[in-house]
């Protein structure tokens, strides 16, 4: 299969899974903004996305995308280090036009995955997971069950803690760097690029990615300072 056996194919896997995750982030960011304006509205979304078949299929799909993207990141990095050879340069300078993010995608990606772990612990483990366990017939205490759809409550609870707020800001910053390289790079790998579109994809990517990160950041800030519906 050319997707796994050729270098271009492996990069296509990274590109497609990466772009799919960017689309998910766009949706997740839009959904989060509701929490600033309406507690009921946000919790209604949380209800929709509880242990329903479509939400579970979506979650499984996302998990698969993250795993594929993560595994291939390591496969590619190991192959690339081998291709570079054992002897390193004594003097190495980053040439002009080479972004810092582009040379540190794995490190940034690892920060993103660690942040994802924290995020699942803060939210998913209190929301979708207990509901699923409950449906499977396992014992979940009634206090947890009562608040599985209280997304707004968990946002307020998490982000009033300065340590969590700071960790989420670091996480989002790493994600911004990762995606500003990742977006146009995906288009380049998929071959939908040329000299004109190079600048366009870069600009489109920067706008989309900055909007995504600002949207997420708005919820962290609103939660920390108790603004809007998160102040109640």
């Amino acid at each position: 299969m050319w997707l796994t056996k050729s270098s271009v194919g492996r990069k296509v896997i990274m590109s497609v899974s990466g772009v799919a995750l960017v689309l998910f982030l766009l949706f997740h960011m839009a959904m989060n903004l509701v929490a600033i304006f309406s507690t009921e509205g946000y919790n209604m979304i949380c209800e929709f996305l509880g242990a329903n078949w479509y939400a579970l299929v979506g979650t499984a799909g996302l998990a698969a995308l993250v795993v594929v993207h993560f595994v291939y990141a390591f496969v590619l990095t190991i192959q690339n280090r081998k291709a570079r050879g054992s002897q390193r340069y004594a003097v190495a300078e980053r040439p002009k036009g080479v972004s810092w993010a582009s040379q540190n995608m794995l490190a940034l990606g690892i920060i993103v995955v660690v942040g994802l772990g924290l995020h699942l612990f803060n939210f998913w483990a209190n929301m979708q997971l207990p509901e699923v366990l409950h449906k499977l017939g396992m014992h979940v205490d009634s206090a947890t069950m009562a608040s599985v759809a209280d997304g707004s409550g968990y946002i307020a609870k998490t982000f009033t803690c300065p340590v969590y707020a700071a960790l989420y800001v670091i996480w989002l910053a790493a994600l911004w760097f990762h995606l500003t390289h990742g977006f146009w790079s995906a288009m380049q790998t998929l071959g939908i690029n040329n000299k004109v579109w190079f600048c366009r994809w870069k600009a489109i990517g920067n706008v989309i990615v900055t909007l995504i990160i600002l949207g997420f950041l708005a919820v962290v800030v609103a939660g920390f300072f108790g603004l809007g519906a998160l102040g109640a």
Binding site: S7, R10, Q79, S102, S185, G191
Partner: peptide, 30 residues
């Protein structure tokens, strides 16, 4: 190795060959 689009090649190429060629290669290959 596998290209990760850092653009170091294009910056250092003595003949200034553009990475738009890499996009073309990817396109042709896919």
């Amino acid at each position: 190795g596998n290209c990760t689009n850092t653009r170091a090649c294009e910056a250092e190429c003595p003949k200034c060959v553009s990475i738009s060629n890499i996009a073309r290669l990817n396109r042709e290959f896919i």
